[in-house]
């Protein structure tokens, strides 16, 4: 177990992008928030600029919470998008970098099994990177809450300030759940990227992308069907429809405001965590089929790491 701790630290040392990428995004979003608050940039609906301070005065009473949750949810989507890119490039490099720079024999000289090495990379992708992202999200969200809450309080309403902690809790719990189910659902993708990373002598990205694309093309030409493409598409975007539910009656009206330039109407969900619905996902055969495929890919990656002799 102590081996695993030090191996995970190793991954953080070797891949500063794991913390740097979300930190940079967080910093940029904070900068945008500050600029929006001081009025240096403007928000537009369609082509028309919106006077934020004026709009905020028209927020329905008691809806500052859902509004903040919506804003923070879009923040967490941004973090998640960046994180998926970080994980993808991390995994492509994970079993390739030390073969390329020839330090692999140094790692092999340590009394650590290749299974432990490969599993440490998988755990980094599935657990460590999401955990780091979640923490940086929470820090960013908290500071944005302080800035925007104070700005609104300055304009005469303490609603945002009061609703903030609840909204932070709701969105953080929701993001935690989303990252968890996403990691479970993406296991076969993680496994595939590790396999490509252990296999490729160069051009890992091509090895990762070309085989599935080739399979799709062959299926299309030979059988005129698109089963593989559908399976892959479902794997890439299919987890949140399974893991969350959304009904129209969850929405409440947050703001309806007419300006000379046009109307502004916003609805939001009252309590993001009410969308959490693990049952459908846990009952989905796709989840368990994914685990089986992932196990095969990961076993292949371990085998290549252990027995391949390249030097």
């Amino acid at each position: 177990m102590s081996n695993m701790t030090i191996l995970l630290r190793r991954e953080l040392w070797a891949n500063p992008a794991i913390t740097a990428a979300p930190a940079i995004i967080g910093g940029l979003l904070l900068l945008l928030t500050i600029l929006a608050v001081v009025g240096a940039i403007s928000v537009s609906v369609g082509d028309d600029p919106v006077d934020i301070v004026e709009a905020i005065k028209h927020i329905e009473p008691g809806t500052a919470g859902p509004l903040m949750q919506m804003a923070l949810a879009s923040l967490s989507v941004t973090f998640n998008t960046v994180m998926i890119l970080v994980i993808t490039f991390y995994l492509l490099d994970a079993l390739y970098a030390d073969r390329k720079d020839r330090s692999i024999l140094f790692w092999k000289s340590l009394p650590v099994s290749d299974t432990q090495i490969v599993l440490s990379k998988l755990a980094t992708a599935a657990l460590v990177i999401p955990a780091v992202t979640l923490v940086i999200y929470l820090i960013t969200a908290f500071v944005i809450y302080l800035i925007s809450g104070s700005a609104v309080a300055f304009a005469g309403s303490t609603e945002v300030l009061a609703a903030g902690p609840g909204a932070l809790l709701e969105t953080t719990l929701t993001l935690f759940y989303a990252l968890l189910v996403q990691s479970l659902w993406y296991m076969p993708i993680f496994g595939w990227l590790l396999l490509a990373s252990a296999w490729a002598k160069r051009a890992v990205l091509l090895w990762a992308v070309l085989p599935p694309v080739a399979l799709m093309l062959i299926e299309d030409m030979v059988f005129r069907t698109t089963t593989i493409a559908q399976l892959l598409g479902e794997r890439v975007v299919g987890v949140f429809p399974l893991a969350f539910r959304h009904r129209g009656d969850m929405d409440i009206r947050v703001l309806e405001h007419s300006t000379p330039d046009g109307d502004l109407r916003i609805t939001a969900i009252d309590g993001l965590t009410s969308m959490i619905q693990p049952g459908t996902l846990l009952a989905s055969p796709g989840l368990y089929g994914g685990f089986v495929v992932a196990a095969i890919f990961i076993a292949g990656a371990i085998w290549l790491r252990r027995y391949r002799d390249e030097s």
Binding site: W13, A14, D98, D101, R102, S103, L105, F106, S109
Partner: peptide
Amino acid sequence: ADVAVLPRWL
């Protein structure tokens, strides 16, 4: 193996 090959980021 060949001493010069420790990971460069380490």
